[in-house]
């Protein structure tokens, strides 16, 4: 019973940010739900191996990212087609209208970014993670995270302020 209660508490705390992270990368509700659920399923089976309980959040995000990479490898062919379709449907974002952006437009802009920038940028905004924590989650060096963030954010601003660049 205690284990069930712990699990429910964990889900209640983290399912929303995990889903947001998953959706930021997949831009697909079903895939994001699957990734989120799969992450908690892995936790239910392997979470007891985590000794430092303060790392639960990082562990969950790392696991979800791994699952995403695995999913992307399996769906690489289909994903490329979807990206092409999404590029053609990108909304026009006026330079001064960042505040008028809706989440869908933001996701579409994120969709047009190189894949290596998407996860760092999403974590950067979603969870206020430090650069070191983002590096741990994505399992890349700190310098790589900073580099990808700098380029990813620059690319995101460029796309949000210059709609033409979204299709380039």
């Amino acid at each position: 019973m205690a284990e069930n209660a712990d699990f429910e508490s964990l889900v209640a705390t983290y399912y929303a940010p995990l889903y947001q992270f998953a959706f930021s990368m997949t831009r697909d509700e079903a895939d994001a739900c699957d990734l989120t659920q799969q992450t908690f399923c892995i936790w239910a089976n392997k979470g007891h191996q985590l000794r430092d309980r303060s790392k639960v959040k990082t562990w969950l995000f790392t696991t979800l990212h791994r699952e995403f990479l695995s999913l992307r490898r399996k769906q690489s062919r289909a994903s490329h087609i979807e990206l092409d379709q999404a590029s053609a449907e990108l909304p026009v974002v006026l330079p001064s209208s960042v505040n008028q952006l809706d989440t869908q437009s933001l996701m579409s802009a994120l969709d047009c970014m190189e894949e290596t920038f998407q996860a760092p940028v999403a974590l950067f905004y979603l969870q206020d993670y430090s650069y070191q924590e983002i590096a741990e989650i994505l399992e890349v060096p700190l310098g790589t995270v900073k580099s990808r963030l700098a380029r990813g954010l620059s690319r995101l601003y460029e796309m949000l302020t210059d709609p033409k660049s979204q299709k380039s």
Partner: peptide
């Protein structure tokens, strides 16, 4: 930054996702 952060955090999952995860587990 604040605007973008808020937009990212407006991503809302399906309302039943939490219950689905808990019940299926």
């Amino acid at each position: 930054q604040i605007t973008l952060r808020n937009k990212f955090r407006q991503i809302a999952g399906p309302p039943a996702l939490k219950e689905q995860i808990i019940s299926e587990q």
